[in-house]
Amino acid sequence: MNRREFIGRAAAAGGALLLAESGESWPKAPSDQINLGIIGVGSRGQQLMRTFLRVPGVRFAGLCDVYEPRFAAGREITGENTPIYHDHRELLAARDLDSVIVSTPLSLHSQHVIAALESGRHVYGEKSLALTVEECYAIVDAVKRTGKHFQVGLQYHYAPWYRETLRRIQAGKIGRITQVYAYWHRNNSWRRPVPNPSDKKLERLINWRLYKQYSGGLVAELGSHHINFANEVFGSAPESVVGSGGIDFWKDGRETQDNVQVTYRYPAGQTLVFSAITTNQLDGAQVRVYGTDGSAVLTEADAIFYYEPKRPQSAVAQQTVV
């Protein structure tokens, strides 16, 4: 396996939190070591580090963050005295990097992704792509210009039950797909603890998801996974959207909404309904795909197919677990 092949496999590993299960046969000579750098060693970045370190030959050659405690956390994960950088430009100036992970707040994605691509590195960037449409196009342009690999870290897209579900849907097993209902329901404040809450700068740094300057709120941070999957199911991007939401329960100074309900219309007359709430977790994170002959319900652990009554019961199971 060469480094180019690695990028594809490692990216799949990070996105789906799964690893390929055959041929773990990368040579272990130092020349085949893959040196990664990471910009943003927060909770998501730390989880990505653990996942990438399950790929043979991967080593972290640089940790970049602006919050000092993240360096100790990152070094604990790598298990070694990994070089640290306070500025992403310093990290990218390091000569021994093959690829870069960008797991910073959404508003910083385009700056960091484009800089990493232009430094000649392949990039694994956390979702969503960027905060504004202009920034998204700038990333697309940078990928085309540099010819480097780039992948957005969308959850579960490589999980076997998601791939198998897509295969069955595309094979017509549940008929013509008309609706996708997607939920990300949790019962917590979506707020992370801040050691010193009187430090307002630190509060905004740690809880960046709650402030519009940095975050697209629940739709960008949670809905992006489901929206992209619906795009795969429908085979296109949506053409219109309506939605509502508000800061209705967690009135704690946040700027992004604590509940959203959004309806997307697709060109072929299909609909995605996405709901995110923070006051009840019954439905958890799941996607329900409704077709004329049946339904697929995808969770974080599996996918269950249900079939409509008009399908002959004597011939086909009414429920299948993938």
Partner: peptide, 29 residues
């Protein structure tokens, strides 16, 4: 999610599935 031997998606389950056939790289933790 990492250590469960009940969850097929856990890192421990991946090791259990593969380690009799090949050396399995895992994360430092």
């Amino acid at each position: 999610e990492a250590l469960s031997d009940y969850r097929a998606t856990s890192e421990l389950s991946r090791i259990n599935r593969l380690a009799a056939r090949q050396a399995v790289t895992t994360d430092p933790e």
